[in-house]
């Protein structure tokens, strides 16, 4: 895999080409983006790269990444990422996932933590706690873009995008992000009913970082998520919503790297 300073490069896993951003050197940090994709210029990537080698792919079907035939669930995506870890022979990996990326991270970890050292989940989806008539996660396909921004961000202006002036390639990537999110998250809505019953298999230090202004998810959802994973810590991040890595990139990366460097985490790595 070639590495350049900013632009995304290509990585082929099982014949599927992923666009991937890579930054920094040292212990591997796999960054798993949320539903709206990853921007090569995102400050959080540079900040995380101060603590290791950041590998940030666009998930299959997102951005400019190909979608393998038959891939329809986050369960499938997580197996794909296990193949990626194996192919790159990554070990001692800090996995950082936000939103749907946090869901993917949890799905990876219940299958195998052999190559992982810690999990950091930022406002993750993927689980259901409420009863059958209570939706835990706002139906993002029933709200307008403005309503979404008001629910998802501490500062709704951060979420605004001028689609009309977007270059065609970026508009296509945005359309693919939305389509892929619906492919994997339409129903059951943004969760895997099986996942809750598999979480006991996660045996590595886990941190939930929580943008407290998130109203796509409630804070009690985040705390329930942490309580469902043995030993998981929960840390709020103020002045951030559903995408804390975007609204507070410095704080998000600092907490993630600090967690990866705690004595318990170091002991595990040794």
């Amino acid at each position: 895999m070639s590495v350049t300073a900013d632009a995304a490069t290509s990585l082929v896993v099982n014949g599927t080409t992923l666009e991937t951003i890579e930054r920094g050197r040292g212990r591997p940090i796999l960054f798993l983006h949320p539903s709206n994709g990853i921007d090569a210029g995102a400050p959080v990537l540079d900040r995380l790269a101060q603590g290791g080698r950041v590998i940030a792919p666009s998930h299959p079907g997102f951005g400019a990444s190909q979608l393998p035939k038959g891939m329809t669930t986050i369960d499938d995506v997580s197996y794909f990422y296990l193949d990626l870890l194996e192919q790159l022979d990554l070990r001692d990996v800090l996995v950082v996932g936000v939103g749907i990326g946090g869901w993917i991270a949890a799905e990876i970890a219940v299958k195998s933590t052999e190559r992982l050292s810690q999990l950091v989940l930022g406002n993750p989806v993927g689980l259901k706690f409420g009863d059958r008539e209570t939706r835990d996660i706002v139906d993002i396909w029933s709200v307008t873009p403005d309503e979404f921004n008001a629910l998802a961000y501490h500062d709704p202006n951060v979420g605004k995008r001028d689609y009309k002036s977007l270059p065609d390639a970026e508009a296509l990537a945005a359309a693919r992000n939305r389509e892929a999110t619906a492919r994997f998250g339409w129903s059951p809505y943004m969760h895997n009913p099986k996942l809750k019953h598999r979480l006991h298999r996660i045996c590595i230090p886990t941190l939930i970082l929580w943008g407290t202004a998130d109203r796509i998810l409630s804070e009690s959802y985040g705390r329930s998520y942490a309580a469902a994973i043995a030993g998981a810590k929960f840390e709020p991040i103020e002045r951030a919503g559903h995408f804390p890595h975007v609204e507070q990139p410095e704080e998000f990366a600092r907490r993630a790297l600090a967690f990866a460097d705690t004595p318990a985490a170091r002991a595990r790595r040794a």
């Binding site: 396909w141 709200v143 009309k164 977007l166 508009a171 296509l172 359309a175 389509e179 999110t181 492919r183």
Partner: peptide, 23 residues
Amino acid sequence: VHVPFRNPPGFLAVEDYARMLKG
């Protein structure tokens, strides 16, 4: 029709969906 229901992702081919996003 309530605006968010008009074009769910995946209903249109993705190239057409991108054009729609651009208005």
